[in-house]
Amino acid sequence: MSAKALASELTEYQKHPVDGFDVSLVDDSNLYDWRIGIFGPPKTPYAGGYFKARVNFPKDYPYSPPSIRFETELWHPNIFKTGELCISILHPPGDDPMSGERPEERWNPTQNVRTILLSVISLLNEPNTSSPANIDASVMFMKNLTEYRRIVSAQVRASQEIARQEGVAIPTSVEEYTQRSRQQMERTKQDEEDAVDFENNYYDDDDDDDDGFDDGFDDYVVEDDDSALMDTDADEEENNNKTAQTQTQMAKPILLDSSDAPLKQTRSAALDLASKLSSVTHVDSRGDA
């Protein structure tokens, strides 16, 4: 079954690409070892970058989660220096040190590569400093954002060189970034599902425990109070609908810009991106699942 599930997922992503990702097998005879190319999302410090990672699936996928290891060096609080990615969606819920994360952001067999990739994009935008894998990067992100961004930019440039050598074209504008999936959307009707899934997950990052990093951080956490408030609402309101929740998540700050103006730009770019992708108005209530 895991082979069957993986084969159909792989075909699915090649037919309906996930924005910002290239998906392929490392070796055509092994379905359990994937290579993904991640294009840095526009208007973030990772924009223009091309980051390669390996996804390893266990034999009992999807009952156990895959693991992800970056092959391109990437300075980020949630990526170990060895390249392993530490993100809540790759862990089943349980009483472990990654507490404070909501169970719906954890692994369960209805998650899939698409939901993982969307969480990865969210994590690039908004590191989770409450459970860092790279403590140095995490501290730098909080204390010295300028230096943090300088390191990331250097890595982006290095990755561009590799992309050039490999003949990979990196999308730079939002238009290009979303082009492949928009083309698909025009072609097929079946995309309704995918767009819904996108809407459901793009902002559904693993970082709802914002409250953990107030110190030295207030400069960037513009709406920290607001989002904390909304989280509480979301917890209390058993049947709050997805629209409200999506707004909650959209209202959350994208942290990587240090002044208000670029922050607004980033956020509007993200909203723009979302509206371009989800022409569908279907509301999915799985968010409170």
């Binding site: 156990s64 089943p92 819920p93 909501r102 169970p103 719906e104 369960n108 067999p109 917890d235």
Partner: peptide
Amino acid sequence: LTVSEFCAREVEVM
């Protein structure tokens, strides 16, 4: 826990 949280933690995982 809410019912949904309980399901996510105790039912919807193997």
